[in-house]
Write a protein that binds this DNA or RNA. Structure first.
Ligand SMILES: [Mn+2]
Ligand SMILES: [Mn+2]
Ligand SMILES: [Zn+2]
Ligand SMILES: [Zn+2]
Lengths: 144, 144
DNA sequence: CAACAGATTAGAACACTTCTAAAGAAGAAA
DNA sequence: TTTCTTCTTTAGAAGTGTTCTAATCTGTTG
């Protein structure tokens, strides 16, 4: 199955370029993380979960490296951080402006396109400030 | 100045009733906290800041008691918890539905009435869920 | 290759929060 | 009032997610 192999090769090269475009060296650890984060659809994931996933797939990587890279990817605009829980950070591979459903019971995030949900009538901003972002979280529980 | 004294007496009695209405005993610590939290306008405050404030006013109270009571007040509907920072919790004395400006540099919250800011076109909810709350955070930075 | 800057790592440290279990205080009953 | 019960407070230990440290390792450039 050469096509399979070629596809994988190409994928890795794309990921390496993505990493290089952030001025970062494509190390074994970064490539593995990029594969987990970016190779299929959008993800919302915490550092510890990602670490567990990596170890589960046999990728040897320390938790410090997970944090280092999540922050570096975030700084480079490859990820964004979503604040929904006062005790842990979620990283989002969708960096377009958008909003979220948050399933409180499962600790799970789901995107809401900002074309669908809109925020209206934002009041005048306090003097000397500008908007850095607008976050809408629709918190969900099980229907009773 | 008897009026002063009477006013204070009445305030404390109101606070004691507020505490009793939550099925909690009006202890010295609870009355002091209620005074700090509820006696002038709406507040957004963290546990450690409130602890510092109490100590600063000579109220002897442990941090554990601050946390215990913030949670008890929240459960009783006297406070709500606002998630804006992945590393600490803010408690809000305004329990009406409303939204927030968050001054990221100063770690400071400011209310936006939900009459002024509205969220439109919330998409259909995922199967089997219902909305528990909708939080809008308008994050602000210093204007450059 | 050599040389260097950047990256990874284990484990310590940190900040915030929760837990534990013992002592203290409030309210009800008598 | 005194007694009894239940609730509350507390110091400090423990827990949790995250960041730091400083030694080692690896990618890149010449
Ligand atoms: Mn962070
Ligand atoms: Mn809490
Ligand atoms: Zn998202
Ligand atoms: Zn508020």
């Amino acid at each position: 199955m050469t096509p399979q192999v070629n596809e994988n090769r190409t994928d890795v090269i794309d990921l390496e370029n993505k990493i290089r475009s952030a001025n970062l060296r494509p190390t074994r650890q970064r490539i593995s993380l990029a594969k987990l984060l970016f190779s299929e659809g959008n993800r919302h994931i915490t550092a510890e979960k990602l670490h567990g996933e990596a170890l589960g797939k046999g990728v040897k990587i320390s938790l410090a490296t997970i944090y280092n890279n999540l922050h570096q990817f975030t700084t480079a605009g490859l990820l964004r951080e979503v604040v929904v829980d006062a005790s842990k950070s979620y990283f989002d591979t969708n960096v377009e402006p958008h909003h979220h459903f948050f399933h409180e019971d499962r600790g799970l995030l789901e995107d809401i396109s900002s074309h669908r949900l809109t925020v209206d009538d934002i009041p005048n901003l306090p003097e000397g400030t500008e908007i850095s972002s607008i976050d809408v979280i629709v918190r969900l529980t099980k229907r009773k």
